[in-house]
Amino acid sequence: MSTRRSQGPPGPAAALNPLPAARPRAHNPALPSADPRAGPRTARHRAITLRRCETIPFHAPFHAPFHAPLYARLVRYGFRKHATYVWGALAGAFTNSVFGVLRAYVLIALWEARPGLAGYDVTHAVTYCFVTQAFIGPMQLFGGGLDVPERIRTGDIALDLVRPASLQLWSMAEDLGRAGYLFLVRGIPPVLLGAALFGVVRPSGFAGWAGFAACFLAGWAVGFAWRYLVALSVCWLVDDRGVQVGSLVLTTLLSGMMIPLPLVPGPLGELVRALPWAAMAQAPADVYLGTAPPLETLAFQASWAVALLALGALGTRAIRHKVVIQGG
């Protein structure tokens, strides 16, 4: 196993810490395997692991072959953990709603000057504004939401990494619970307020809602994958605030949270609408409005989700290499 590992692409950790390639690794079944080629190929596995993330501990006898109950429970715990901060979440809903109202007036003024701009009418524009404000909580558009950086800083990450479960999936399950809770408490109020003050459009029929639900989940997955990558960067940086703020700039500006991306002119507009951040807010908002085809949008989001999650899986492996194997 150790020799096969060395044939893989050198991760960032390998570059940082040159290590004899064939360093023997104690084969402890309790330690998760880092081999991407190991594992049973059941349909369910593929369904939940997205490209068979290599950190799934297929050799751990007490979890194989199926982990769904574990992750389902983690989703519930994530939900419950955030449910204890109900006042904070409501305060967030209030702030998002206030900003929704302020931004809505600006967009109304713009659409009064340019009716039909970007294929939206005024109600579309107002709806867009409140829906994207509603995404801030569940999609965690201002960054953070993960325990990983704090755990890396305190060194507790070593404990997480020796668990016979993937750190990435573990975090993802908890984050899904968080997103679910914040969807209810921080997502719904701004849209209701927008409906009461200005009137908003709704997806039409079951197909419309189902399409939105799928694209919402896909948008969350891209958002999680991105935040996970940002979180892992702490491992290689003395001061991670730079990455945090950098991510904040990219996400707020390029997700469509501050301004609908179709308003960005020219090739720059083409570019920003193709980047992963557009998958986090612009794409699900467009499906909500019915101004984008759900299936194509979903394909766009899913490809970014897969790409970023795969990068995250590589990063997780690099971290394990750095923390668990080298004891760094």
Partner: peptide, 13 residues
């Protein structure tokens, strides 16, 4: 954001 808005219009309110 202001610049993007004025890329689409010459006057706001």
């Amino acid at each position: 954001v202001i610049l993007v808005i004025f890329a689409n219009t010459t006057s706001l309110a």
